[in-house]
């Protein structure tokens, strides 16, 4: 079976037009072994990697209150994912600043604390490879939400939120350092954990782990990313 068939073959992958299902990549085989290592007979199995999809209203509980209060800040399409009792607002980058400002200032929202930015690199999420994930906490209402912005690898720009949440200063520097996300408007977007002259952004999936084989008592153990694995 060619590679093309794996992703488009109707009898293998349920190619869905349903917007609620978000497929990012596929997984082959049953045991994670690749090539000749898999003698189980399940090597031809192809399964899509499906992330939790967008939720429809009502989201339930206070989620709707937050979504209603937040609605005026959106100018571009947005969506909500509710998974494992956590709510995620997927926001376009052009709306990010307005959303953050409203989240902090609106008495119905009052998310006083932003606990930083976390980058995630989904190389197979074409056109939105790099995600910036913000976790926010409202101490007034004791609520937690997550705001997620995705940008393409070819244009990794998004606005800096430190005018609203100064605490994101170092967090944005770390995300830049590790993923190459460029936070426009940050007063000093420099590397923070890696040395200043370090090439590349280590947490990206296309950046190798590195490592050397270790010899001990005559045996050689390859570095972790070259060992046999079952993921």
């Amino acid at each position: 079976m060619s590679d093309e068939d794996k992703t488009t073959g109707p009898d293998q992958v349920p190619v869905s037009t349903d917007p609620e299902v978000k497929i990012v990549g596929t997984r082959t085989g049953m045991f994670g072994a690749h090539g000749t290592g898999d003698t189980s007979g399940f090597g031809g199995l192809v399964a899509p990697i499906v992330y939790p999809g967008a939720a429809e209203r009502p989201f339930g509980g206070w989620y709707d209150e937050v979504a209603d209060a937040l609605e005026p800040a959106f100018t571009a399409p947005w969506s909500v994912v509710v998974h494992r009792k956590e709510i995620t607002f997927h926001v376009r980058r052009e709306d990010l600043l307005a959303v953050m400002k409203l989240l902090r200032d609106d008495p119905k929202l009052r998310f006083e604390l932003c606990t930083g930015v976390s980058g995630v690199h989904y190389p197979e999420d074409t056109g939105a490879e790099l995600h910036a994930v913000y976790h926010l906490l409202s101490m007034t209402h004791n609520r937690r939400i997550r705001v997620e912005v995705s940008v393409p690898d070819s244009d990794p720009h998004l606005p800096s939120t430190i005018a609203t949440y100064p605490t994101n200063d170092w967090h944005e520097r770390e995300t830049y350092d590790m993923f190459g996300l460029i936070f426009d408007g940050h007063p000093g977007l420099t590397r923070i954990l890696m040395p200043d002259d370090w090439p590349g952004h280590p947490q990206r999936k296309d950046y190798p782990l590195g490592g050397i084989p270790v010899e001990y008592k005559g045996g050689t153990i390859p570095p972790p990313d070259e060992r046999r694995s079952y993921h």
Binding site: R27, I49, S118, V120, H171, Q203, S229, H231
Partner: peptide, 24 residues
């Protein structure tokens, strides 16, 4: 912040460490 892609390994784990934030 734990992210999984359905595999046997963490797809991405990010720690929001209080020391990091507080040092600012």
């Amino acid at each position: 912040h734990v992210v999984s892609d359905g595999g046997t390994r963490p797809f991405r784990t990010h720690f929001r460490d209080p020391s990091f934030t507080n040092l600012q």
